[in-house]
Amino acid sequence: MSFSSDERAVNPIPPLILALFVVAMGVEVMFQLGTRGIIGGPSAVGWRQAALTDYGFQGQYARFMVETGQLRPEFLLRFVSYPFVHLSFTQALIAGVMLLALGKFVGEIMHPFAVFVLYVLSTIGGALAMWALAGDSEWLFGGFPPVYGLIGGFTYLLWVRLGAVGASQVQAFRLIAVLAGLQFLFGVLFGFAPDWPADLGGFVFGFALSPLLVPGGLSALVTRLRKRG
């Protein structure tokens, strides 16, 4: 998609996406300071592990609620809390940078609140996919599933834009194809990450939900993209 510099200047990162980035990185900074003994005392060394256990997602919590019919708040929280706890500073930083970049791109078309809704629903979709494809025992941490949801939104917007100008819409999937290829390469070299179903789920949810989050629906989106072309 091509946008003028003036359009980019008046389309900053959606505030709620920026707030999500600040919260996630704030949690990570706290872990780093605690590990180094700067805050929290000796017990702070275990903050990360405790947070991963308390706020990470695992399929067993979803299965418990389905089988018992009990919607327990502490289990429901895990569907949206896992993106804020990471295994390492590197994971948090990469996910955070991608969040800002994709939030900015998608926010150039969608309303800022719609971008936030896309993030939240992709987060939940990633957890559901993790449960469906990885079972009950695998843990899910980190902010990549909702980032993949934003990639799904970006892919959808680009897909519509290419269709509006008569170009090949297959090109819209270039970004996700590159990322999938890199994940496959790293998987072959270093072992496949068990949380890949969540990334896939986040992307699918993001792509599928995007038409519902554009003001006026698909027809309005096509008209708007044609004007920007």
Rank of each mutant, 00 (worst) to 15 (best):
L77T: 06
F3E: 12
R78K: 15
A167Y: 11
A101P: 03
Q60H: 11
L71G: 08
P83W: 08
L158V: 10
N11I: 01
P42I: 06
F205E: 02
G107H: 05
A62V: 14
F144K: 00
L140D: 08
A172R: 05
M110R: 06
T123Q: 03
S2M: 10
A134I: 04
V85G: 01
L179Q: 05
P146T: 08
G153N: 07
A101G: 02
Q91S: 14
Y82C: 01
Q58C: 03
A9T: 11
Q171L: 14
R8L: 15
P215R: 14
G153Y: 08
L93V: 15
R48Q: 11
F57T: 10
L140E: 08
R36N: 09
G40H: 03
I17D: 02
V222A: 13
G191Y: 10
F105I: 12
L76K: 09
R228M: 14
R36K: 09
T223S: 15
M110Y: 09
L87I: 04
F21I: 01
L52P: 01
L87G: 14
L100T: 09
V147W: 07
L225I: 15
V45G: 05
V204Y: 00
E7H: 15
G143A: 09
F84G: 00
M30W: 01
R63H: 11
Q49M: 06
H111A: 13
M1W: 11
S219N: 15
A167R: 15
F3A: 13
G216R: 06
A44R: 08
M25R: 04
L157M: 14
P194H: 07
Q32C: 00
G59C: 05
A51C: 13
G201L: 05
P146I: 10
F113P: 02
I39S: 00
F154E: 05
A208R: 03
V106T: 06
F89P: 02
L16K: 05
Y148T: 02
Y119W: 15
T53A: 14
V80E: 04
V147I: 12
Y61L: 12
L18R: 07
G37H: 03
A129P: 09
I176R: 01
M110C: 10
V170F: 05
V222I: 15
F184G: 00
F186A: 02
G69A: 06
G153V: 06
R161D: 14
A177Y: 01
I39R: 00
V188E: 04
G26S: 05
R224F: 14
V115K: 04
V23M: 04
S88W: 04
L102T: 10
L158A: 08
E138D: 12
S43R: 12
G135P: 06
S210E: 10
A51F: 12
V178L: 11
Q169F: 00
L20D: 03
L18Y: 03
V85P: 01
G229N: 15
G201D: 02
